[in-house]
Structures are given as structure tokens and as C-alpha cells.
Design a protein around this nucleic acid. Sequence first.
DNA 1: ATGAAAGCGCTAACAT
DNA 2: ATGTTAGCGCTTTCAT
Lengths: 396, 396
Amino acid sequence: MPGDQGPQRRGPTIYDVARECGVAPSTVSRAFSRPGRVNAETAARIRAVAETMGYRANPLARALPTGHTSLLALIVSDVTNPFFFEIIRGAEQAAAAAGYTVLVSDVQESAQAERQALDRVVPLVEGVVLATSRMSDSTIRVMAKQRPTVVLNRVLTEVPSVVTDNSRGMRRAVEHLGELGHHTVAYAAGPEASWADGMRWRSMREAGYELELKVRRLGRFEPTVRGGLDAAHALALAPATAVVCYNDLVAIGLMRGLSSMGARVPAEVSVVGFDNIFGSDFCSPPLTTVAAPLRALGSHAVRALLRELGHTTPHAVRATVLPAQLVVRGSTAKPGRRRHAWTKDAAAPPEPVSGPARASGSASAAAATAAFPSASSAASAAAPARTGQPAHSPPA
Amino acid sequence: MPGDQGPQRRGPTIYDVARECGVAPSTVSRAFSRPGRVNAETAARIRAVAETMGYRANPLARALPTGHTSLLALIVSDVTNPFFFEIIRGAEQAAAAAGYTVLVSDVQESAQAERQALDRVVPLVEGVVLATSRMSDSTIRVMAKQRPTVVLNRVLTEVPSVVTDNSRGMRRAVEHLGELGHHTVAYAAGPEASWADGMRWRSMREAGYELELKVRRLGRFEPTVRGGLDAAHALALAPATAVVCYNDLVAIGLMRGLSSMGARVPAEVSVVGFDNIFGSDFCSPPLTTVAAPLRALGSHAVRALLRELGHTTPHAVRATVLPAQLVVRGSTAKPGRRRHAWTKDAAAPPEPVSGPARASGSASAAAATAAFPSASSAASAAAPARTGQPAHSPPA
DNA sequence: ATGAAAGCGCTAACAT
DNA sequence: ATGTTAGCGCTTTCAT
């Protein structure tokens, strides 16, 4: 029966308050949702009575006719990944400031579980922020048709986005390594589906070209500590004095792998991470990393979304680019002498790694040499860019 | 106007599907929410038509008459605290398995912001899991009156709870330290409002008494890395060869503080944490810690909550106690010789720390000596206890 | 097994 | 400024 208690403890409604006040229910409604459209005194009286009766507006009932749930969804690929912590925090803050609540939804598992989680959450919210690296562009576009959408860390035509300035960040990292005296730097790549990975690798090639450093790619590893461990093995096969990693998790795993193989960081290998996640400052050694403006990423994303909700008319889709910052800690240093023990390239003779290095030509299959001109020149976005076209055009 | 588009893109309703199928709307409704109460064939036809029309039930409309939102709230004191990561994950898993979605809500800031966040979330959900250490017991009881509630990491009469077996965990930690040869162990205390802190300190005193180790309390520190840094200074004033920390964050901070003061961990000081959060394995040295069953904590909490929702009749309130496990890593070792440089007790002469230690009597005000009998004997919960009365009676 | 109709609590025309 | 009334999309009696 409709009138049952249900799991929801039902309290007084506007009807109860109205009766108590001797006014019409609509007046009570207005007293709350449209103050000013009702006599100041009656409004005050209504509020007082409502207060003593313990009246609370039912958000469900309020949302049904209007579609205004005051809910936003933040879809992440893994709540457990520290990369998202500050993003979530930033998003919640911006949302709360606007009277919205964010529904954080985790869609890791299968594509099917993803679909299910989305189906459950999306109908409830007014808009969604997508922060899941491995979701396909087309799935994202489909989503964007159903609800106002903003995508994080990826640039898409048609869907507004908020991204870190990977290009400048990478540039800083490579400069730093160059200044320390490294001549060849490796990139421990992340998932192919990751837009950020593409940007980072590409930016690294550009930076390497301009700064005249040799650049090599290692791998494709899982974006986890585990993946970093794998990267350590790949590095043993194709040594380098410095490695920039797809993200901090990989960098941390790499450092651990390296140290368990007996290679000293940063004495023998310098390691740079990406993102500056929780934990990157207390790993050992503390990680030098390209800090993403995590909190800002989250808050800008919801602000962009809120803007989107406001727009009733079509308008320009834009990408917001937020500046990254190189945080230098203990995992990078001048290239040092290598105790050759930990490398495994039995074939190639040991070669001096400091000095005008020639990249080992006989590198493993996983490593690709790439030090050639690239189509576009270095990015030039203003550092504190809050919004505007991305400094770097997305890879077609 | 009620019929506008709103922010919500409205799709086909049961009325549309009904018309298309030549049946009544109520039949369509039944076809979905009460399969079996409708002819198998018509049901199939309805589903098919609905599918092609892209019909999706509106959860708001569904929830309004029934109060069944399929939403649960998980209130945490700080989404950013790694302690909650796996808890959230566990909760989401258990919820999803039951067709529920969890709304994670962060209520850090002010008590006022807390109230606001709660007001926004609670009316939407069918039940709530409270995982916020610093919320008062009375606030919790008030909450429990409004919605079915389960509280995490704290035992309350009247409200069902899920907790870690702090007692056994602490016991293991102290045993471990004792076996290594430590004679006096310090406890770096956490917030006074924390139920877990009370349990841990109390359990430590009991364990110390039974195992004949001296036990001292340091502090009350913020439950953060920052607090651990403070603990390092406190420890310099009142040295000990081993310290168990309120949680991993404090332990990590302590290790950092210690090492920046020139004290070696574990050579000079052994450090034990609590919880086994993300990061505790890659800090330096890797942290020995009492691992809380984080994931299980989350999933048991929602299962308990779901059970609560099922119960329509009053029933016994119970506490579920989940076993902790000592994870021995690199931060603990036999007590070694102390290079006295880092301690700061100018007053007291240096004393040998290994050997039948007498706790330094001239300890700082922050340190309290406590090695005396305690009222209750050691806990005796079965290790894999899934549920039942807590092994240790809650502090009145 | 299915249809008709009331109602969940609120908002928003449309009156007055 | 306030009252009247019709929905929002669904569930659920109550009939048939």
C-alpha cells in the first residue's frame, strides 16, 4: 500500500505544516523553495511551525516533478587508487558549495559491472564527471548524450574536459633530468587506452628532441605498483640512467623492483613519477614527480559541469587545462657509476652510462628508440591557465 | 511547468510502453517489479517493447511511493584518508551484490558542515554506515533514530557495530616486540574522541601486564603523518626502544621524524603501526603493522545494515568483531645500541636501552608510565569471529 | 491475469 | 500574496 511506513521513516509533509499554519500547501512549498515570493511574516511563521514539527522536505518528491536532484556523479575507475583521493575531495567541495552532492561511483571490474553501476547511478544525477581512463571515447559520447558530462584527464571533441598540462609537466621533468646530466631517458609507459599516456609519451619525445636528450620507451605496464615491478625487469634488460614513469604507482613499483635487484635509486637510476599521489612523499626515496593539481582537477570538473547544467542553449565545448608542477624530491640525482650487477643484457657489453651516451642499440624488444622531430612544437599554455583550448592539440 | 524537460532528459514511461503494447500501465509496472504476477508471454512482450523503446524505470518515481531508494550512505570523516579506501571498496561490493548503491559522504570540516552533509544525504538513503571517529555517541544515537544505522570501529549500546579486534591485534604486536627483546614499549596515542584509541591503549596496558613489559603512553597526536612527526619529538624527550602507534599514518610520520633526527629505524627504535593502510608497505622501512580487515569491515558493515533493513521487528543489537592480523615488515627489530645524539633529555643521563630496562623516570609530561594490573583479562574472541559480542567489553 | 484509480510529497501554472 | 489544481512516474489496492 502506498501509505505504508516503508523503510523510509516518513515525517510531516507540507500538508501537515499548511494545516497547522492555516495556509495552502503551495504557500508552504514557496516559503521554502521560493522565499521572497511569500509574505515575510507568513514565511517566518511557516518556518517556525515547520521547525517545531520537525518538517524536512523530501528530496525525492522534490526531484520528481523538476528533475532537479542536486546530485552529481563522479565515475572513477577505482576508488582505491590514491590518484582519485584529492580529486574526489575537490569535486565534493565544489559541489557542496553549489548545494550539490556527489555520488562517487567505482566501475572497475568488468565492462558489464561498469554498465550496471552506471545504470544505477546515472538516472539519479543531473550530470556526470567521468574520470575513468579505460572507458572508450564512444562510450563517453553515449553518456554525454544522456546527461551533461565532463571528462577528466582526456580531451574529446564534443565533450567538455578538464586535464592536466601533461606537456609542460613532462617538459619540466625532462629538463630537470637534462640539467642533472642525463643524456638518455626512458619512459615506462602505461595503458594504451589512457589518453594521458599518449600525451605523456608524445610530450616526452618532443621535449627530448628539443633538449637533445635521447628518449626511449619501455613497456606498457599496468598502472600499478605491480606494473612498476615489471618495469624494473624491463629496465634491467635495457638499462638507462633515468626513467620517467607513466604514474607514481609505477614509479614506486619501479623503485622497489630496482632496489630488490640491487640497483640504487637515485645513485644508479633516477626515477620520476607523475601525479604526486598520496604516498609519493614517504616512499623510499621520496619520489620526484610531476604533480597534477589533483584537487583543482576535481573542483574544476564539477564547476564545468555545473556551468553545463546552467546552459540551456548549445555552446562551445571547451577543454580546461590546469598546470602541473615538478616536485623534486629524492629519487633523482646526477647519473652515477653503475654497478653492472643488476642489468641482464648478457649480449651487449657494459657501456659507460654517464658521458655522451649512445642508447644501447641492442635493447630489448620492449624498448623503442625515438629521438626525432615531432609535428608540433612545445606547448605554450599560460602556466596558471584556468581554461581555454588545450595547449597541445589532442592526438587526432 | 511540470512537463518541461528539466535538467533530466526524460525518456519513455510505463504509459508509453503500455500504449505501445496495448496493456495497462499497471501491467507494465508489474512486468518489471513483480515478474510472475503477470502472464509470461505478455511479460516477455512488454520487456521486448520496453527494450526497443529504450525504456528505463525512473528510480525517483519508483522510490517516492515506496521509500525504497536502493541507496545506502557511508559517512566517513575524510575520503582522503587511506584508511577508508578498502572500507569503501568493501562496502560498495557488498551493496552492489544486493542491488544497492552506496553514497560516500565526507564530513570532515566543521560540525556544521557535517550537519549539512548529513541533512543532504540521509533523507535519500535507506540506511547509513557511520565511519567517523570523531562524531559523538549521542549524535550517532540521534542518527540511528532516523534511519537504520551501523557504526564502524566503535561499539555502542543500542546501535549495531562492526569493529576490528583491536585487543588481539595489540596483543600480537606487543608479543612480537617482547619476543624481539624489547622491555619497554611506548604507545603514541591518537585522538581522545576515538574509540579505537581507547581500546588500543587499554589493550596495550593489558598485554604489557601479562607479558611483563613496561608500557608508556606518549602523547595524543593528530592521527596524521604530521602527528607522527610530533610523536618523534616527544619520543626524543622520553626515549624508548619500541613504539606502537595509534595508526599507520602516525607511524609513518614517526619514522620520518626519527630518521630526520638521525635515529635509525629499526636499529634504534622499532615502530609498529595499526591498520595496514595503502602505503604502509612502501614507506621506508616498510611498516610492521596490525592489519585491520579493511575490506571486510566495509562489507560486513553494509551486510549488517541490510540485515537491519530487513528486520521489521525489534531485535538484538549486536557487535561484529573482525580479526586483525600482525604483518611483520621492516620497521621492527631487536633493540640495538642507541647513538644517543637524537634524544633530548638533557636532564637525565644517558642510559642503556637494551637490557632489563627501567623506564626513564624523568620522562616528559606527555609520557605516563603504566604497567599495572587491569580490570579485565585478555580478550578471547575466536580468531575468525564473524560476529558475536565483542571479545572485550566496551569501556562502559 | 489484467485494468482502473488513488496517492507518494512536491512544484508550478493558473487563478484570485 | 496566496489558493487551486494538475501533474512528475511509479506502485498498489481494489475490481473485474
